[in-house]
């Protein structure tokens, strides 16, 4: 099993509902966020193209944050989700330095925090909070090894890209273009 997410950049309107849903669901401290919206503007008016992306941790297959963690606090659990054990994290910042997506931050309490794909919801058979709340239904989540999962079906007939593939991290967020 390999959890992955597809984000339809053509359907996303950049409303930030996913950001707020995540902050509420995961008690993210004020001023921090585990997911965020990127607006990529190409050209200038009237010949302008905007790509909207809801971004978060890529839960990389070759995760540099897990590799460089000196205590093993950053680890990969079933389904390929990259997790941080709070009471093993010493807050050295190595994983924050190693992430090409800047998806991690230093929680005010000291440990490093990031997106968990809402693992506590997955265990109950639910989708991540951001996926459930999206008003345009532009987020697809599921097991990418299952050809009939939401994410596999979303990727099937569309072109897609991943972010910074040259970083060699094998990211698991797929952006439908």
């Amino acid at each position: 099993m390999r959890y992955a997410m597809a984000i339809d950049t053509k359907k996303c309107v950049g409303c930030s509902d996913c950001v707020v849903a995540c902050q509420t669901e995961n008690n993210v401290p004020h001023g921090y966020c585990r997911d965020w919206i990127v607006e990529n503007v190409n050209g200038s008016y009237p010949n302008v193209e905007i790509e909207l992306r809801s971004e978060r941790c890529n839960h990389c297959e070759n995760a540099p944050c897990v590799r460089c963690c000196p205590t093993g606090a950053s680890h990969i659990v079933e389904g390929g989700i990259v997790m941080v054990t709070h009471n093993e994290c010493i807050g050295c910042g190595a994983c924050i330095q190693s992430c090409p997506y800047d998806a991690r931050y230093s929680h005010p309490e000291g440990y490093v925090d990031k997106c968990t794909f809402c693992q506590h919801r997955l265990q109950k058979g639910q989708n991540p909070a951001c996926v459930d709340v999206c008003p345009t239904k532009c987020l697809y989540f599921g097991d990418i090894e299952d050809p009939y999962s939401d994410v596999s079906l979303a990727l099937k007939n569309r072109t897609w890209k991943v972010l910074a593939p040259e970083a060699g991290t094998k990211p698991q967020l797929y952006f439908l273009t």
Binding site: G14, S16, V19, G31, Y32, C33, W36, I37, V38, E39, N40, V41, N42, G43, S44, G93, I96, Q97, D102, Y105, S106
Partner: peptide, 23 residues
């Protein structure tokens, strides 16, 4: 072509706009 990148609503201490986690 001019390309611009915005990250809306994100201003995490020591991460945005530039990483500055090690002093």
């Amino acid at each position: 072509m001019k390309e611009e990148l915005f990250i809306s609503g994100r201003d995490i201490p020591n991460i945005d706009p530039f990483l500055n986690i090690w002093h």
